[in-house]
Amino acid sequence: MANATASTRPARSPRRNSSLGDRVFDILNYVFLTLLMVVTLYPFLNTLAVSLNAASDSIKGGIHLWPRQFSSENYKFVFNEATIYNATLISVLRTVIGTLVTVFASAMVAYTISRQEYVLRKLVTIAFIITMYINGGLIPNYLLIRDLGLINSFWVYILPGIIGVFNLIIIRSFIEQLPESVIESARIDGAGDFRTFINIVFPLCLPVLATVALFTAVYQWNSWFDVFLYNSSNVKLSTLQYELQKILQNSNTTSSAETAFANSSAGAAVKVSPLSIRATMTIVAAVPMIVVYPFLQKYFVKGMTVGGVKG
């Protein structure tokens, strides 16, 4: 996208006589956008600073971009709990397995509905598209998962969301744009549909599949509601996001207690506080995404435009 917009630039880039008004506008625009970046980033940096600041000191307030009284106690406390390692493992597992299953299954079904000669093509397509408009809702879904015996199981993270209609449609559109001759030549060599899909179509689809994989991975990594709904009684299946959610929920109900805690003399003796644990856990849950994101950003944006054009 950035490239696309940039390509219109050279035509009007050499300013012959930019007026005073234009220059004022330019300066104001740069200042404003810089301010906007600060406002966007500040909450992250502030939370980071609070997480690295001694809890007894944070309570006094006034932490901005830099810890006032540096301390790693908060992180020590968070990483002292055995649950966090297990939760990280489950988060990674659901992200990896969920993404692989989604990408493979979506591509395979997309391939079948891209074959014009397939007799069930319309039926399969319509069956999927209807689910864009209608869903059973929370309670019927919960009862279904319960009746399927998926409560307290890892597979509840994977099975309900294998194929998303939107993904299916963008992959199908992508396959339909591939030259038919490529697929035909595989046929002439005697390859069946499955072999054609695996050997020819799947590798050719990697650009669009990368986008689908990224969005699925973000979705899986960020999910917490299914953990809360189905697996909250089994701490072994907890994820990082859900561990954070539990902390938020606790500090939410005790936020007035927090102030009392601040005023009490006990506050100074304790090494961690709900506030500092909350900030630390927030950073722990956010960091993997923030580290990976800048490298993958252009693929996300590409995916948005693919969807925007064809979806």
Partner: peptide
């Protein structure tokens, strides 16, 4: 920078917002 908050979960966002809006 401006796309970044889109990719963090609402849980993380809520953690940040609660930290910002806390009495201290």
């Amino acid at each position: 920078v401006s796309y970044l908050p889109h990719f963090i979960s609402w849980v993380v966002a809520a953690g940040i917002i609660q930290t910002m809006l806390a009495p201290d």
